[in-house]
């Protein structure tokens, strides 16, 4: 499944490969993203987009104050986002901290949600500042507890000091740990990488090292999933598919709070990577507040008016 044929994992092979990537012109990338932001999505296409966006949400709680009760409520919400309407699809996954995975798994299994994936943030999320044995243990723990998706963070310190081999090696180790049991999402934390050139390079390192998904952010750093950042990452997965025939997913996380924001993301996907990426297996939106806005907009589209916020549940 994992191909290391393009690079052999050594620092020099990575550096040589990354040098072949064209740069990103900041002004041009931002202009393209802004232009796509002007697309006007109405009527049937809006219904379609809302439905799709709901199914792509990684419904997330990543707070120090998380409790089993909070996590169970989140799981129920994710499985049946609108308790009054069974036609609403379930979300893409539930995303929690490592120690909440077993609570989430047990609860989901007990309410008929055993197919709903659970994503655990891992490798000393959000900073990634821990030794490798700790990161390995962190990930192993989550998988053993029943996580089916691992959202790991890259070592931004290593990346920014040019130690690309280390970044690659960590991802590769975590990927091997995940094996067939869990999908690996690699968080680049683009807000700390700052430049689009860095975003492109980090995307390739993650893909080459075996990521199933590349993810923008932890949600703990701003800016997060800005449109140009997501654009550059979508270009990377599109070009990587050309190169290898493998489709890697993209997860936009952080700062996407409204239906409008979510639809803009879907337009970016549609017109950059292409319609093949418009499904929860290849595009996710990491969010918490977004789901309720999507539900309210969905009701509005059906009933022609906005309902009071009390018609959507607060979990």
């Amino acid at each position: 499944m994992i191909t290391y044929s393009i690079v052999d994992g050594t620092e020099s092979s990575l550096k040589n490969f990354l040098k072949t990537l064209p740069g990103v012109d900041q002004v041009g990338a931002e202009a393209r993203a802004a232009m796509l932001g002007t697309r006007s999505i109405k009527a049937a296409s809006k219904n379609y987009a809302i439905e799709l966006a709901i199914s792509m949400v990684d419904l997330t709680t990543l707070e120090g104050a998380d409790t089993p009760g909070k996590v169970r409520a989140l799981c129920s919400k994710g499985l049946r986002p609108d308790p009054t309407d069974a036609t609403v699809p379930h979300v893409g996954a539930i995303c929690v901290y490592n120690d909440m995975v077993s609570t989430a798994r047990q609860h989901l299994d007990s309410i008929g949600g055993s197919d709903l994936p659970i994503a655990a943030v891992s490798t000393a999320f959000p900073s990634g500042r821990a030794s490798m044995p700790v990161k390995i243990h962190d990930t192993q723990d989550a998988i053993d507890a029943g996580a089916t998706e691992i959202d790991m963070v890259i070592d931004r310190g290593a990346f920014l000091s040019g130690r690309f081999g280390e970044v690659f090696e960590e991802i590769k180790i975590i990927k091997e740990l995940c094996g067939d049991r869990a999908h690996l999402k690699v968080i680049l934390e683009t807000g700390e990488l700052v430049t689009y050139d860095n975003v492109r390079k980090a995307s390739y390192i993650a893909m080459l090292a075996g990521a199933d998904f590349i993810k923008t952010s932890t949600g703990k750093v701003t800016p997060a999933a800005t449109a140009p950042v997501v654009l550059v990452m979508l270009e990377a997965v599109r070009d990587y598919y050309e190169l290898t025939g493998t489709r890697i997913g993209v997860k936009a996380a952080g700062g996407i709070r409204t239906t409008k924001d979510a639809i803009k993301q879907l337009v970016l996907v549609n017109e950059t990577a292409g319609p093949e990426w418009l499904n929860p297996a290849l595009f996710r939106i990491g969010a918490s507040a977004l789901l309720n806005d999507l539900l309210q907009q969905r009701m509005k589209m059906r009933e022609g008016r906005y309902a009071s916020p009390n018609y959507v549940t607060i979990d």
């Binding site: 006007s40 296409s45 809006k46 379609y48 799709l52 319609p275």
Partner: peptide
């Protein structure tokens, strides 16, 4: 609708 085709937005 089975694909993300943009509805007319005149």
């Amino acid at each position: 609708m089975s694909a993300f085709e943009y509805a007319p937005a005149p």
